[in-house]
Amino acid sequence: MAAPVEKKVTVGTIGAYLGSVGLLAILTTIQGDAGLIDPLPDPTEPFVLALIPTAITFVSGWAAKHTPRA
Rank of each mutant, 00 (worst) to 15 (best):
A2S: 10
A2I: 14
A3Q: 08
A3D: 08
A3T: 14
E6F: 06
K8M: 05
K8Q: 08
K8R: 14
V9A: 04
V11P: 07
G12A: 11
G12Y: 03
T13A: 07
I14E: 02
G15C: 03
L18V: 14
L18Q: 09
L18W: 12
G22F: 02
G22E: 01
G22L: 01
L24A: 15
L24T: 12
I26Y: 06
L27F: 10
G32D: 00
G32T: 08
A34Q: 13
A34K: 14
G35V: 14
L36T: 13
I37R: 01
L40N: 06
L40Q: 05
P41K: 02
D42Y: 11
P43D: 00
P43Q: 00
T44A: 02
E45W: 11
E45P: 01
P46T: 15
F47H: 08
L49R: 04
L49H: 07
A50C: 10
A50N: 05
L51E: 02
P53T: 13
P53F: 08
A55D: 06
T57D: 01
T57W: 00
F58V: 14
F58G: 05
V59M: 00
S60N: 10
G61W: 08
W62R: 11
W62N: 07
A63I: 15
A64D: 04
A64K: 06
K65H: 11
H66N: 12
P68K: 05
A70G: 11
